[in-house]
Amino acid sequence: MTLPLYVPVASPVHRLSAGVKLLCLAALAVLLFARPTLTVAGAALVGTLAVGLGVARLPVAVLARQAWALRWFLLALLVVHALTTDVASGAHTVLRLLTLVLAAAVVTATTRVTEMVAVVERLCAPLRLVGGRPQRVGLLIAMALRFIPVLVERADRIRAAQAARGGAPRGVRALRTTVAPLLVQLLQMAHDVSEALDARGADDVPAHRPRRT
């Protein structure tokens, strides 16, 4: 699986369990909003950077990219606050937001998708009480990831087929003549996939079961 957002490094942060990291992130968010002072936000930012760059040894670029994506917004936020309230409250809001986004990026960059999936399955364990099956969450995730490239391929195929017949519709017409048939094809494929899943034991109930009386 290609994970552009995961950065493999042998660090204690990487080794920490995904559940603990997610809890820390949640705790940080609570802290930043419960104690809205410049000192707390500043300390949290320094701490986040220390963990991310110092302990986890992530490349600066990984975190810089996140901050850079927010640059105009943070700037605009500062200006709006300076005009409506004061510069200090603007700086505080910007700092808090930046800290949270960077902390989230640290968790994402140090945790594999498979570990996250395991956490999600564990979080879904209470579903068992109401008759749900937590393992199905893992299956859903796997299936969605598998469908993404298939979908792109089918979309290309439809486009090619239409181009071969001299039509390359644009605009709203393209959506109707390309997306609608594509969706129908994909729904049929999803149905076929479900049959294949059943054939490999996904479900022990027949597809066309008699109605409950």
């Binding site: 699986m1 299956l139 796997a142 299936m143 990831l145 598998r146 298939v150 494929m189 076929d192 996939v193 049959e195 294949a196 899943l197 054939a199």
Partner: peptide
């Protein structure tokens, strides 16, 4: 066991 026509429709994991 059952093998289908379209391999894309029976591979469910990435």
């Amino acid at each position: 066991g059952f093998v289908f026509q379209d391999p894309d429709a029976q591979i469910v994991h990435p």
